[in-house]
């Protein structure tokens, strides 16, 4: 377990922050950009649904659930790496 120094805390935060930025960028994609362009996406069909409609009622929702679980999985790894992941 690395020493709980200022530098290691700093590194922990930088990694945490970068992970959060990535997750938020994906959140913007599924929560804002895809629903915005639902009209154009409807030209395609997915599992029998118009694609734009599909994202608004299901696709983006599945993505949100996945985003949270993936972020937590990565964040646990970051916390453990710096020895701050105690239960």
């Amino acid at each position: 377990m690395p020493a709980d120094t200022k530098a290691s805390r700093q590194m922990h935060w930088v990694k945490t922050r970068n992970l959060t930025y990535i997750i938020l960028a994906l959140w913007v994609l599924f929560g804002i950009i895809l629903p915005w362009f639902a009209g154009s996406l409807n030209a395609y069909t997915f599992m029998g649904f118009p694609l734009g409609y599909y994202f608004c009622v299901q696709g983006s929702l599945i993505a949100f659930v996945a985003l949270i679980w993936i972020q937590n999985w990565r964040q646990d790894a970051i916390d453990d790496e710096f020895g701050v992941g105690e239960e």
Binding site: T20, I23, L24, W27, F30, G31, P35, A38, Y53, C56, V57, S60, L61, F64, V65, L67, I68, Q71, N72, Q75
Partner: peptide
């Protein structure tokens, strides 16, 4: 119709914010 789907996306997507920005 479509504009109301904003509730569906909004009331689920908000949890990504709760998780990454607030709760922990």
């Amino acid at each position: 119709g479509y504009p109301y789907l904003g509730y569906i996306v909004g009331w689920t997507g908000g949890y990504v914010l709760v998780n990454s920005l607030m709760a922990p």
